[in-house]
Amino acid sequence: MPFQLRAEREIVLLLAGAGFLAAAVWADRHDVEPVYSPYSGKYQGHEINPIDRLGYTVKNERAGDLADFGLYGGPTLPLLLSFDPVTRKHYPAILLIWFETMLLTFALSSLVKNTANRPRPYIYNADWMPDRILTRKDRAAFLSGHTANASAGAVLFAALLGAYDRPLARYGRWLAVGVAGLTGYLRVRAGKHWPTDALAGIVLGGGIAGAMVRIHRKANW
């Protein structure tokens, strides 16, 4: 088996994930100050960097719906290893690594969202009513949780295929790039995230998955 579990480390990782999630909930519940649209004087558009100006400010519900395939499909990919006879016998350990990866990704992305409070692109569209108070969902642009979770699941799947030297391992990286990139693009196209939000989600999710594989991998494997 290419991975090794240690009780102390796994407890720390699980507690860290729970702690970040609790912090995200605390930040959400203590965010009670009303915030208005860009045209009220709170946001004037000058904070939009040149890269993000390439994004979309019009909602595209179809693109948003398609991005849900990445949100749910990416994290599901590592679970497919339960069908492989080689990885199946190590599946409890793989399942724990998967759970830790997704917990940390979800908790950290939620914490960042609830503290950054970045308005979504559609707030800057001309049809937005200036006197409308921005809800929590309206201020959850940074970073893209869809992209972070899709990237975490896809990168973990690719890394596990490589660690076990499975026949499809050489395609795993391309799959990870495709799932992460397409999910990020669809969220930007939906008008829900700026390009930098999607890039940050890829870095966070992929980074956590890569780190989890690295810290669990046996040194002599």
Rank of each mutant, 00 (worst) to 15 (best):
P78F: 12
L79I: 15
L80T: 14
P85Q: 09
V86L: 15
T87M: 15
T87Q: 15
R88H: 14
R88C: 09
K89V: 13
H90Y: 15
Y91N: 02
A93S: 15
I94V: 13
I94N: 01
I94E: 04
L95N: 06
L95A: 15
I97G: 01
I97F: 01
I97L: 07
W98G: 03
W98S: 01
E100C: 10
T101H: 02
M102T: 03
M102S: 07
L103R: 10
L104W: 02
F106E: 14
S109W: 08
S109M: 10
L111V: 09
V112G: 00
V112P: 07
T115D: 04
A116K: 08
A116R: 11
N117L: 14
N117I: 03
R118I: 05
R118A: 04
P119L: 11
R120M: 10
P121D: 04
P121H: 01
Y122T: 09
I123C: 03
I123H: 07
Y124K: 02
N125D: 05
A126I: 06
D127H: 10
D127T: 10
D127C: 08
D127M: 01
W128M: 05
W128S: 12
P130N: 02
D131Q: 15
D131E: 14
D131R: 03
D131T: 10
D131N: 03
R132A: 12
I133A: 08
I133V: 11
I133T: 02
I133K: 06
L134T: 13
T135K: 15
R136H: 13
K137A: 14
K137F: 05
D138E: 12
R139M: 14
A140Y: 05
A140E: 13
A140Q: 13
A141P: 06
F142W: 09
F142M: 03
L143E: 08
G145N: 10
G145F: 00
T147N: 11
T147P: 08
A148N: 10
A148S: 15
A150Q: 10
A150H: 06
A152Y: 04
A152D: 10
L156I: 13
L156G: 08
F157I: 09
A158W: 04
A159E: 02
L160D: 01
L160M: 14
G162L: 05
A163F: 11
A163V: 00
Y164N: 08
Y164C: 05
Y164V: 06
Y164P: 04
R166G: 02
P167D: 13
P167E: 13
L168G: 06
L168H: 09
A169I: 10
R170L: 09
R170Q: 07
G172W: 06
G172D: 07
G172I: 02
R173G: 13
W174P: 03
W174I: 10
L175K: 07
L175F: 02
L175N: 04
V177Q: 08
G178I: 12
G178V: 06
G178D: 03
G178H: 03
G178L: 11
A180I: 08
A180V: 03
A180M: 07
G181P: 12
G181R: 15
G181K: 14
L182K: 05
T183S: 11
T183W: 12
T183L: 04
T183V: 12
G184W: 00
G184S: 01
Y185S: 08
L186Q: 02
L186V: 02
R187V: 10
V188M: 12
V188R: 09
V188G: 04
V188S: 11
